[in-house]
Design a protein around this nucleic acid. Structure first.
Lengths: 196, 196
DNA sequence: CGCATTGTATACTGATCGGTATATTATCTG
DNA sequence: CAGATAATATACCGATCAGTATACAATGCG
């Protein structure tokens, strides 16, 4: 038998929680912060999501889904694999320099803090890192097979390199650095792509 | 008139505090954690360092000093600027893959967490980031002037790129990733250096 | 309507946080 | 030794943390 219906939209409150986590990090986001931003009270939050860690994991999942969806779309938008990676770098550049608030990347930010003391989060972060690398790898492997990369280029190593570039950019975007810095990094990463 | 002498070595306890901050981050390191690792009690810590934030800033300074000293030595160990950067990348690689505990880089780790809520720390982190970039820039500028880089290469942009690579590696080193990943990134960054 | 069910609001819990007041201990000076 | 000074140890402070017990409000079903 159904009782009183939930008086908020679970997806939109989750999105609001995600914004808080992005800005303040996992430990830095208190339940007061979260409840205020989500416009609900603590018992409602716990009924809907379980606890703080489960809420974070749920937010992390939506973040991952959004991110991977966009990355896949970009990687498939170009028939040339190398060109697809260049598009990805440009997109990441815009993504991290357009916004006002320097939030960086939730996966990178959380991976730095939560590797100890929060095993569930650490495990999930590790999986997300692997997923990212693998998406890049799959696309580059195809490019390699299609002869768009040099024969002696290792698609796995190249995927790890691009992934590393993305993480370096995420760190810089978290600070209040000038957008120019990220532009320059992307430009030089593109130089690398000329050689593989 | 001197009273009771301090019963611990301020430098060595600072080093122990640094290890805690490296492992657990600023917010994640409680005073109990710090006092236990340092082998002193809270009042002693406050007498010697002021408070938690001042202790962290002091630890950050020693970390900076150690880091910059080593970087400068490496950058000056080679007469060729490009070769010096390659040495630096190799050193960073060893540094982040040799140790057992994945600590990453204190500047990178702290910059991600403390950019809001701890203005003093955020300011210092920003300065340290600039210092790092400038050390790389100075060396690359010299290399440029000595004709070791292409005429149209911008030493500033290249310094920012290398700095970004170092930060990406620091993120990866913080996780429990395979050393192979960092090796591959360094190898591809070296490819970039062939082109500048 | 009456009842079961489920979400919401208020107010609270024990634990832990950074920081400190008080008292004691150890040193230097005279 | 006596007194001044400074570091130590114990025990505590208010604030905040994540999480919850209790009471109330809103729905569906009969």
């Amino acid at each position: 038998m159904a009782g009183r219906p939930r008086q908020f939209d679970k997806d939109s409150t989750l999105k609001q929680a995600l914004d808080v986590f992005l800005e303040k990090g996992y430990e830095g986001s208190s339940l007061d912060d979260l409840c205020t931003a989500m416009g609900i009270t603590r018992p409602s939050l716990y009924k809907a999501y379980g606890n703080k860690e489960a809420l974070f994991l749920a937010a992390l999942s939506t973040y991952r889904d959004r991110f991977i969806e966009q990355v896949k779309a970009i990687l498939e938008s170009e028939s040339n694999g190398k060109q697809a990676i260049r598009q990805l770098l440009t997109w990441i550049d815009n993504e991290h320099t357009a916004e006002e608030t320097p939030t960086g990347c939730l996966v990178v930010n959380s991976g730095i803090i939560c590797n100890e003391g929060y095993p569930q989060i650490a495990d999930k972060i590790a999986i997300l890192h692997d997923q990212r690398e693998n998406i890049l790898f799959e696309r580059l492997k195809r490019a390699h097979e299609e002869g768009q990369l040099k024969a002696d280029t290792d698609p796995r190593a190249l995927a790890q390199y691009i992934n590393g570039i993305l993480q370096g950019i995420a760190v810089l975007a978290r600070g209040q650095r000038k957008p120019e810095v990220i532009h320059n990094i992307v430009a030089l990463a593109n130089l690398t792509l000329d050689q593989v």
